[in-house]
């Protein structure tokens, strides 16, 4: 053991650390640069910025169009979170606990939105909703995002349910608890951290997603991602960097909460 460990030091290790470091740098650098630029005092996107200020954040908050877009995004993401979590929990229970024919096919079907290119899902949803409710429906966008978020929710909850010790439920039955009481007092509390973190992933899936709202938002209900997209087509100023930084912060916060929840779980 010591011999083989010893051989790892030297050039090979150096190269390994070098490549790993480079990959991490390439992943992180754009975010860091965007964050730095967002605090720029300059009129245009320049790096490094000549000075620092909060003017672009102030501008973002002052413009009603952007504020409205943020609010739309939050609404869509919240509805997506609720819908995807509820449906995902029920689907996971059926897929893990249920005994029925064609379970594998149903599972593949639930996961299929991950495989189908989002643009195809988006186009399909567009042609459907444009006839039913037209564009600009927050609910329609949320339903679209639920389709995308469902596979993630199902994977997170199903993997937790698979690891769930069914003897805990058997113990509850033997102690006199009915099925509903057992589900409510034993199963749900134990899988709750996984369910909540699946919900947060659903929220993020929706919050970050561009294609579906790009088709469905219309002009009435632009989400933040659509607004960024549209404004990038017209002009590029450091406010985009400020919005992007806010985006990253929200994502990091949600991921952080999710990590804490997982750690708190049993």
């Amino acid at each position: 053991m010591i011999g083989s460990e010893g051989q790892r030091t030297g050039l090979g290790t150096l190269a390994l650390y070098g490549v790993a470091g480079l990959v991490l740098l390439l992943l992180i650098a754009p975010i860091v640069i965007v964050a730095i630029v967002s605090f720029s005092s300059a009129e245009s996107l320049t790096f490094p910025p000549p000075g620092f200020s909060l003017r672009w954040y102030e501008r973002f908050l002052a413009l009603p169009g952007w504020r409205r877009a943020l609010w739309v995004s939050v609404q869509v993401a919240t509805i997506t979170m609720v819908l995807a979590t509820l449906l995902g929990l029920l689907a996971s229970l059926a897929l893990v606990r249920g005994r029925f024919r064609g379970k594998g096919i149903v599972y593949a079907f639930v996961l299929s939105p991950m495989i189908v290119p989002t643009i195809i899902t988006a186009v399909a949803l567009y042609f459907f909703f444009v006839r039913v409710v037209g564009t600009g429906s927050i609910l329609a966008m949320a339903i679209g995002h639920t389709v995308l978020a469902l596979p993630i929710v199902v994977m997170v909850i199903a993997s937790t349910l698979q690891g769930f010790d069914s003897r805990l439920e058997m113990a509850a039955f033997s102690l006199g608890a009915g099925r509903l009481t057992t589900f409510r007092r034993i199963t749900v509390p134990i899988i709750a951290p996984a369910v909540l973190s699946a919900g947060l992933f659903a929220f993020l899936t929706s919050f970050d997603e561009l294609l579906i709202p790009l088709f469905l938002a219309g002009v009435e209900a632009e989400t933040l991602s659509v607004r960024i997209w549209n404004s990038l087509l017209l002009e590029v100023d450091p406010m985009i960097a400020a919005v992007s930084t806010l985006f990253v912060v929200v994502t990091m916060l949600v991921l952080g909460i999710s990590a804490l929840l997982r750690r708190a779980g049993p």
Binding site: D165, R167, L168, M170, A171, S174, P189, I190, P266
Partner: peptide
């Protein structure tokens, strides 16, 4: 059935 049961892995409710 009103029978007490102790399981091999204890099955104590972790939460």
């Amino acid at each position: 059935r009103q029978l007490g049961m102790v399981f091999q892995n204890y099955a104590v409710f972790p939460h």
